[in-house]
């Protein structure tokens, strides 16, 4: 059976699609966004983070055969564990009662979940058999074949659009957005329901908002557009993982957020 590598499971996720959801964060991402708030899910390999402030000096980590789960203070955290559909499914069904009352369900996110499309398709299929609403949160930077795999079992695509202009996209994420925009149009043409999510990072993609709005106007299956204002809460994760902190300094002000949101109001 296919196994996936995931970094986390978050229950009671209320901002990852409709209703109360459980979100699975898959590990590994083809993009390198400067503002990434899930740096633990960029690499496809397991990583151990060390949160200095939680260390109680128990010394367990000096012992042979130590694994992060032996850390008594919870300072060493393993991001990245292999899991099968059979193992994951019961966890995702724990909160089924909450999905039902709230119109929620399960969201696959990451990292880029579609880099593990085979697994996602299997999992989504099972979830649909259980009548669970499904959402795929994707950056879109994947081969079209991967999208085809999950299309039949995905109720909503939470689709990230960071930039319309290719050069801005390359600057911010290290990759072209050509495939991303093509895939978006493809999903739209296949009548997949789409929620566009725009990470709003002042100083990086301010200039893109109007253009993205124009792009959205051409699509017919966009159910919602959400501005995700950039935040820097992930700072401690970068240092715990020993990664270089690439987070931009400027935070969006309330006023700027409102202005960004107004671009997408009355888009239909």
């Amino acid at each position: 059976m296919t196994k996936a590598i995931i970094s986390d499971i978050k229950r009671f996720a209320v901002h990852d699609g409709d209703g109360i959801r459980t979100t699975v964060f898959f590990k590994g991402c083809p993009l390198k966004c400067l503002w990434c708030h899930n740096p633990e899910s960029i690499s496809f390999k397991p990583q151990t983070a060390f949160y200095q402030n939680k260390c109680i000096g128990c010394g367990e980590c000096k012992k042979e055969g130590f694994t992060p789960k032996d850390c008594l203070g919870g300072a060493r955290v393993l991001y990245g564990r292999e899991i099968s559909v059979d193992e994951l499914l019961p966890i995702l069904l724990e909160d089924k009662d909450f999905y039902e009352t709230s119109g929620g369900g399960v969201t696959l996110s990451g990292g880029e979940c579609l880099c593990q499309a085979e697994f996602c398709a299997e999992l989504l299929k099972e979830l649909k058999l259980e009548k669970v609403n499904t959402a795929v949160d994707t950056c879109g930077f994947v081969p079209r074949a991967y999208i085809d795999k999950v299309l039949p079992y995905t109720d909503t695509f939470l689709y990230d659009v960071k930039s319309f202009d290719e050069d801005v996209h390359i600057k911010c994420t290290g990759a072209s957005n050509k495939v991303i925009l093509e895939n978006l149009k493809y999903i739209d043409s296949c009548d997949g329901a789409i929620e566009i999510r725009i990470p709003y990072v002042p100083g990086f993609n301010d200039s893109q908002l109007e253009k993205i709005a124009d792009l959205i106007k051409e699509l017919k299956n966009v159910k919602a557009v959400k501005i995700l204002p950039y935040h820097n809460f992930a700072g401690s994760k970068y240092s715990a993982l020993g990664m270089k902190n690439t987070l931009p300094e400027e935070l969006p002000t309330e006023e700027k957020i409102r202005k960004a949101e107004s671009v997408f109001r009355n888009i239909d």
Partner: peptide, 22 residues
């Protein structure tokens, strides 16, 4: 942060309803 905005209100309401249903 979990209960802010419209999503948050919907979620809070659903939490209460689910608690009662269960």
């Amino acid at each position: 942060s979990a209960v802010q905005g419209e999503d948050g209100m919907e979620a809070l309401y659903a939490v209460l309803q689910t608690y009662m249903n269960k």
